[in-house]
Computed example of a mutant assay.
Amino acid sequence: MTTTTYQVTGMSCAHCEGAITQEVSQIGGVENIEISSATGILTVTSAGELDDAAVLAAVEAAGYTGVRT
C-alpha cells in the first residue's frame, strides 16, 4: 500500500470534496480517498505505485488545482 498526500486549492464544501473523490476514484489501484475542504488536503491510498499525473489530472478535471506535498 502506498499513501500519497496532495494540497488542493479551491475547495470550499462537501460538494467540492465529492467531485474530487468521484474523479480520483476512477484511477486504477486507488483503494481509499480522504479529503478535507477545511484543510485542502487530499490523501490517496493505492494498492501499488500511484500515478501522480493521473491524480493531478483528476483533480483538475473536477475543477480544482493540486500539488503533491
Rank of each mutant, 00 (worst) to 15 (best):
S25W: 11
M1E: 14
C16T: 04
E23K: 04
A58K: 03
G10T: 03
L50K: 01
S25R: 15
T4P: 08
E49A: 15
T5V: 06
G40T: 08
I33W: 11
V30T: 12
N32T: 08
T21S: 09
L56C: 01
V8W: 04
M1C: 00
A62F: 14
G28V: 14
V67P: 00
E23R: 05
A19H: 15
I27V: 08
A58L: 02
A62D: 11
A54G: 13
T45M: 01
S46H: 02
I20F: 07
Q7M: 08
A58N: 02
I41T: 12
G18E: 11
G40S: 03
S25G: 14
L56Y: 03
S36D: 07
S36I: 07
V44I: 06
T3M: 12
T45V: 13
G40A: 13
N32V: 03
G10C: 02
L50W: 04
I35W: 00
M1V: 08
G18S: 12
V55N: 11
I20R: 03
G10L: 01
V8L: 01
V44Y: 03
V24H: 00
V24L: 02
I33P: 09
A38K: 12
T9I: 08
A53E: 14
T45R: 11
T65P: 03
A58E: 00
H15E: 14
A14S: 15
S36E: 13
G29S: 12
E17K: 05
T5S: 09
T5Q: 07
G48F: 12
Q22N: 01
L50P: 03
A54V: 04
T65Y: 08
Q7T: 05
A19L: 15
T2A: 09
L42E: 07
E17F: 00
A14K: 14
T4N: 10
G28L: 09
T45E: 06
A57H: 07
L50N: 02
A47L: 04
S37I: 06
A47H: 11
R68K: 08
A61M: 05
A53D: 14
A62E: 03
S37Q: 07
V8D: 02
V30C: 12
Y6C: 04
D51P: 09
A47R: 10
V59P: 00
Y64I: 07
V44N: 00
I20T: 11
T9M: 04
V59Y: 02
T4A: 09
S12M: 09
T69C: 05
M1A: 05
T39P: 02
T5W: 12
V8N: 02
E31T: 13
V55W: 00
A47W: 01
E23M: 06
T4Y: 06
G66D: 10
R68E: 14
I41W: 06
L42T: 03
T4V: 15
Q7L: 12
E34H: 08
A38W: 07
T3L: 04
A53Y: 12
S37G: 09
E31K: 15
L42Q: 03
C13D: 13
I27Y: 10
Q7F: 01
M11Q: 13
A14I: 04
G63A: 06
V59I: 13
Y64C: 08
T9L: 00
V55R: 09
G66P: 07
E23F: 01
S37F: 14
V44S: 00
V44T: 00
V59T: 05
T45S: 15
E31Y: 03
T39D: 01
G66A: 14
A54Q: 11
